[in-house]
Design a protein around this nucleic acid. Structure first.
Lengths: 236, 236
DNA sequence: TGCCGTGATCTGTGATCACAGTTAGAGTTG
DNA sequence: CAACTCTAACTGTGATCACAGATCACGGCA
């Protein structure tokens, strides 16, 4: 191996397959709630929009189906799963258990870099949601950024991956609702809980971090359930 | 809808796609440790063995890659991921947190049917591992049956699905090792912890159930780590 | 007017082909 | 005899074609 030293600097360019890019695109649509529960998704139509053949879309969709972020109906149609209130409650319970655990771990294992990204993410989201005319899609994105800044601080790649899969399921329900009803954002519950979580993690208080995440998740879930938006899930 | 009553008895025949069957087959190979870490897997070869074209295999493999139960190397080869000791420790910690939580939930929410399947699964595994010449593949299968009988008793489909994904990652490491070193099975640690878990769940004691699962998982993990079988993971 | 067959058009699934990149081994050269 | 080169056989990825089944609207029968 006799190479010019300059070549040691080049990093292998990331050859992302089209399938991966299609997956990232669709996953983003789901997590941010731009694909509503019950909405159908045609492979060929999606391939058309993305400007590729249906092969990469097939791979992406089959992965999302494996994650249960999409489902194929008995009639061979791919759609965003409809969620009953019971299923949503189960999902919420699991999210509280796992994301709460991750927040507690974060409080114990965070390093200086974690604190920087958590603090700045919390500040960015508060600024956006207290603005006169909040940009909802941006607020949704910043909410995600804050939460994952926390979870990353647990330093457990496997845990983060599991939570990402949970958000894939919860995103269509929660963020679609947030888009339709921005009043909860204005009410500022989430902002308050986020501040609690930030303080707890800075202080290294695992129990408080867990409690803050639990309050944030169950607050949003109660809001959704109280609106009864899931009832119509049965009709489809 | 005026149908002959006899037609009310027919249940919709389950049209499993070839891709699903291929996935189930490969997942079973992984979970039972018959595919060793580092082992390569050719799409065409697998398709040949399964007697189908590569398309169903592609779908199955892409799902397993999404689960991180398989990985594709930079050189475009699919293989069972090698796991460093640090990764294995992370996986073990997450398994203890989540499977322990599931066991605690099981102790609180189990119904009569759950108790029946848990007790019989525990009995079956004890019988097999105390036999004069234990059938290792069968013991591995019975171990899985017992654990999932417990987790199912939590009545949380989402939780069970997450644990299944964790087993997909842990299977190749743990069960491959068990096949190579049956002495741990003979030692009877697992059997003892299983009995603890069974008693705790029957008694509705969540804390004890959690402790039993934790002991079972960390016992097996310590055994693997002590053997240093993961060190060579770096060489590949 | 109400119902049922029917065909065009959509769906996902599977097979096959094409391609670029990698690997391994045979053959050659020093 | 060792090392290098080149080729042939592989790898996964993507596109295209073929097909069975589902949907829906149109038209004819009762």
């Amino acid at each position: 191996m006799n190479l010019p030293v300059a070549l040691n600097l080049v990093e292998p360019l990331d050859r992302q397959t089209l399938g991966e890019r299609a997956y990232a695109k669709l996953a983003d649509l789901l997590i941010s709630g731009r694909l509503a529960p019950g909405e159908k998704l045609s492979l060929r139509a999606a391939a058309d929009v993305l400007g590729v053949s249906i092969m990469p879309v097939r791979e992406a969709v089959s992965r999302l189906i494996a994650d249960k972020a999409l489902e194929v109906t008995p009639n061979r149609a791919v759609r965003v799963p409809l969620m009953s209130a019971a299923q949503f409650r189960d999902l919420t319970k699991v999210r509280i258990a796992i994301e709460g655990h991750a927040a507690a771990q974060a409080a114990e294992h965070r390093d200086k870099g974690d604190l920087v990204s958590i603090v700045s993410a919390e500040k960015a989201m508060r600024a956006e949601s207290e603005a006169l005319t909040p940009d909802l899609p941006r607020a949704v994105e910043l909410n995600k950024t804050f939460h994952f800044a926390v979870y990353e601080a647990a330093h457990s790649p496997i845990l983060v991956e599991i939570i990402r899969a949970l958000w894939l399921k919860a995103g269509p329900v929660i963020n679609l609702d947030l888009r339709a009803n921005p009043e909860r954002l204005a009410k500022g519950d989430a902002i308050r809980f986020h501040a609690d979580v930030r303080k707890a993690i800075v202080a290294g208080n695992a129990a408080a971090a867990l409690a803050g995440i639990e309050a944030d998740i169950s607050g949003a879930a109660d809001f959704i359930l109280s609106r009864g938006g899931l009832a119509r899930a049965f009709s489809g």
